[in-house]
Simulated scan of single mutants.
Amino acid sequence: MAFTIFYDGKCPLCVKEMQHLIRKDKENNLQFENIHAGDFSRKFPDLDINELDARIHGIDENGKLYIGLDVTHKAWSLVGVGWLYAPLRWPLLRWFADKAYLVFAKHRYKLSFWITGKKRCEDNCEIKLK
């Protein structure tokens, strides 16, 4: 079973990161679930959509829940480049990185607009699975 990432399919930046992960995931270690998909609540009735929408979440094959930058680090580690994100989990940097992530998550649509020219995807952005 793969590490499942619950991502915001209406956020252009979020979807762009998922696309990068998909390209790097040669061993199919990751599974992607758009929290805005029409069947999401049916597939995951125990998950709170508001919590998932506030911060990225992931769950591993043992049922351990990851939140925020822990998801990012775990996902990138599984595709072989976790070292890039490891400093964000170091004790001295972790607190600051987590605070910065919360600001990013809260303002991700505005940041998406500044970076991509697109604030939100109309319905959902498409990720192209392998």
Score class of each variant (00 low, 15 high):
Ala97Asn: 06
Asn62Pro: 08
Lys118Asp: 03
Ala100Ile: 15
Gly117Asp: 04
Leu21Trp: 05
Cys121Phe: 14
Tyr66His: 14
Asn34Met: 04
Ala75Cys: 06
Phe44Gln: 10
Met18His: 01
Glu51Met: 14
Ser41Gly: 04
Pro91Leu: 07
Trp95Tyr: 11
Thr4Ala: 03
Val71Tyr: 05
His20Lys: 15
Gln19Pro: 00
Val79Asp: 02
Ile49Met: 05
Gly38Glu: 13
Thr72His: 15
Leu78Ala: 04
Arg89Ser: 12
Asp25Trp: 00
Leu84Gly: 03
Asn50Ala: 13
Lys110Gln: 12
Tyr7Asp: 07
Cys14Ile: 00
Asp8Ala: 04
Lys118Ile: 12
Phe104Cys: 05
Ala86Asp: 08
Phe104Lys: 07
Ile35Gly: 04
Ser112Gly: 13
Asn29Ile: 01
Met1Pro: 14
Ala97Asp: 08
Glu122Gly: 09
Trp76Cys: 04
Val81Glu: 11
Pro87Gly: 02
Asp60Arg: 02
Lys110Tyr: 08
Met1Asn: 07
Phe44Ile: 02
Lys119Met: 10
Arg55Tyr: 04
Lys106Ser: 09
Asp98Phe: 09
Ile59Cys: 10
Pro12Tyr: 05
Glu61Asp: 10
Leu102Met: 13
Asp8Lys: 03
Val79Met: 01
Gln31Ile: 06
Arg89Glu: 09
Glu17Pro: 06
Phe104Leu: 11
Gly117Gln: 09
Ala97Arg: 08
Trp83His: 14
Pro91His: 10
Tyr7Cys: 03
Val71His: 06
Asn50Met: 08
Gly9Gln: 00
Ala97Val: 13
Arg94His: 10
Lys64Pro: 03
Pro87Thr: 01
Pro91Phe: 10
Asp48Pro: 02
Ile127Glu: 00
Ala105Leu: 02
Lys118Asn: 09
Ala54Ile: 02
Met18Pro: 01
Leu30Ile: 00
Arg108Asn: 06
Ile56Asn: 02
Phe96Gly: 15
